[in-house]
Nucleic acid binder design. Structure first.
Lengths: 247, 247
DNA sequence: CCAAAAGTGTTCTCGTTACACCCATGT
DNA sequence: ACATGGGTGTAACGAGAACACTTTTGG
């Protein structure tokens, strides 16, 4: 067994443990004044109560069990922090394996990108543990170990995939107006998006359909906005070819 | 240490080992008649000489050492199979962690996509070990464990990145004609590519520049082809926006 | 002078952007 | 009525695909 002989001495095994770490993003609605939550894209973090890196903020996750693969492990461990039915997308973003990335036993992490839909006023703000909070991605706190790098990589992946896949469904509620959808894209991408074209592009790609209902207008009047939904609520690549289409 | 307590009993540790596996691709030139090597995209595989999966073909790789991260490990282990200076690109494609993916000790693999430039008649066919061979990707042999899945994922990643990055540099020799470059794209993508537009697109993106020299024409005459090189021989995303450009 | 291969120029099409204009509702 | 926001139409632009045409070599 040539390619495995190097670790055959299973005593004094230089034990490595395998963990998963998930950067779970959501778009928070415009700042409710009293809470002071700023609008924009947020990440779920929990604050460490022990050394090392006491007080710093960490990504949710933990050790992979012998009976599960890393994807199942990420799902399971997120269930402790946030309602699993709300996690609408979860995907690997890479392995973080620098030998000294955490002190103590060598621990290799598989990073994940997770997405949770925008909370609309209809449903209740889902409960998260006391040591856990949503943080705006443009003002991340002091983070534990290499978790900041993992968070940034996940954010980059999200931005890239928003333009050529239907991944936005995972950040959007079941139904929404074009203005709400625009806010989701704007927050996640970090730059403005034209609502006119957004609707047309997504409609042409067959991603969007009208529900038939309308949302009530705001306090200052205005035409009521039509509600839309995504035709498909599972991940799909919608525009795979930047160049060199098959002929 | 809440999120790590589950593995704190470091005796009877359900030991997991971490391996790297690299799907290394190259484009082989048109079939030299006596060897019978078919043209197209090929993967480097070695044939197992022990159980389990004796006789099946496996991806090169091996166990990650405590002192190295997975990327360094993949580089190191490839050096045993193929000259490292020829491996022009190496990137993670994902974690393969099904509990039963290999018999025996639980082994989690990090899959890699590797690329080696096309062999031109100038340089000598680099030596590879006796149990190792290049296999065409469209006719893969019986493969060990889950290595076929890893190979296919790597191939998909290669195809996707060829259209919106400069990744082709890693498959191309130092200088080449547009016709040779077209063959590289055709083989890697699996569909035909118009040489006219290929040159213009890559030129407009600033990826291509003429060397000034020309290649001698073939035996049946014809205009001598100009030689080109890639302006940049390191990975870069050239066309990141499929839609929703910043304004 | 003809065949073969490489390179250039032109048109067509399609998707995205930008922006003006029309529509529906509350006050 | 009119202000306020939502939705539609249309022109401009850019990138890629398709294809005819010119250029340069060997026989």
């Amino acid at each position: 067994m040539a390619h495995r002989s190097s670790s055959s001495s299973s005593r004094h095994v230089a034990d490595t443990s395998l963990e998963v770490l998930a950067a779970v993003f959501t778009v928070r609605p415009g700042g409710t004044p009293h809470t002071g939550t700023p609008p924009g894209l947020h990440v779920l973090l929990w604050q460490r109560a022990q050394e090392p890196d006491l007080g710093r903020w960490a990504l949710p996750g933990g050790i992979v069990l012998p009976s599960e693969d890393v994807d199942a492990s990420a799902s399971r461990q997120l269930a402790e922090k946030v309602d699993l039915t709300r996690v609408s997308h979860l995907e690997q973003i890479g392995v973080f394996s620098a030998p000294d990335r955490v002190p103590g036993v060598r621990t290799v992490a598989t990073g994940f990108l997770g997405l949770v839909p925008l909370i609309t006023q209809g449903d209740h703000d889902p409960q998260i543990p006391a040591d856990t909070a949503w943080h705006p991605v443009d003002r991340l706190p002091e983070m534990a170990f290499d978790h900041r790098v993992i968070t940034e990589r996940a954010h980059q992946r999200l931005q890239a995939k928003l333009s050529y896949t239907n991944l936005a469904f995972a950040l959007a509620p079941a139904s929404f107006t074009v203005a709400e959808l625009r806010r989701i894209y704007t927050c996640a991408l970090g730059h403005d998006v034209d609502p006119t074209n957004l609707q047309r592009i997504l409609t042409r790609r067959g991603m969007l359909e009208a529900t038939g209902t309308t949302a009530p207008p705001g306090p200052s009047g205005g035409r009521p906005a039509a509600m839309y939904r995504f035709t498909l609520r599972e991940y799909r690549v919608t525009d795979p070819f930047a160049a060199f289409r098959p002929r």
